[in-house]
């Protein structure tokens, strides 16, 4: 049972890595600047960690405080720099877990479906931030990283429940 879960998680992470590696150069018309590429990968890693830890944000603890602390820091940087749209989106995302009931919305039989649906707004963060609509402007790599992290967490939790 455990081996099957590990294999599933590995397959998800590998698929996500492939999509992320391909999407970034595609977004830049296959002329990837190494600096931009590296930055993209770092941001994707951040989104992956966000997805991996997001379900735990509903449970009181150090991780919850750390996540909200990082969101406050992000807001404190974005608001003075006048990135109001992104800061407003962060505010909405930060409020959502407080409205949902713990371990009822993030976990359960439809959890995998939710891992795909809930992070959808991340797709549009880059479109909103740049103000330029277009397919290449979509935050596909960020979305995929978040979904992979989130799915990994849910699969690991389901294993925990089944044992």
């Amino acid at each position: 049972m455990a081996a099957r879960h590990i294999r599933t998680r590995l397959a998800i992470y590998l698929a996500a890595i492939v999509i992320i590696i391909v999407w970034s150069p595609y977004k830049q018309n296959w002329s990837a600047d190494p600096g931009v590429y590296g930055r993209e990968l770092l941001i994707c890693l951040g989104f992956g960690i966000l997805g991996l830890t997001a379900p735990r944000i509903q449970v009181t603890g150090t991780l919850r405080r750390a996540m909200y602390g990082s969101l406050i820091v992000a807001d404190m940087i974005l608001i003075p720099l006048a990135y109001y749209k992104v800061a407003a989106m962060i505010g909405v995302f930060a409020m959502l877990p407080n409205v949902l009931k713990a371990r009822q919305k993030h976990y359960g039989p439809y959890a995998i479906l939710r891992t795909v649906v809930l992070p959808v707004p991340i797709l549009f963060i880059t479109v909103i931030a740049s103000g330029r609509p277009g397919f290449r402007q979509l935050g596909v790599s960020y979305y995929v990283a978040t979904v992979a992290g989130y799915m990994g967490h849910i699969i690991a939790e389901e294993k925990g429940y089944s044992e």
């Binding site: 919850r64 405080r65 909200y68 602390g69 969101l71 406050i72 807001d75 404190m76 974005l78 608001i79 109001y84 749209k85 800061a87 407003a88 962060i90 505010g91 909405v92 930060a94 409020m95 407080n98």
Partner: peptide, 21 residues
């Protein structure tokens, strides 16, 4: 956000996060 008051929404969101820590 829907009315386009992004600045107000950002500030409200910021203050709303604080009780969580």
């Amino acid at each position: 956000i829907l009315l386009g008051y992004y600045r107000g929404a950002a500030i409200l969101g910021f203050w709303a996060i604080i009780p969580n820590i």
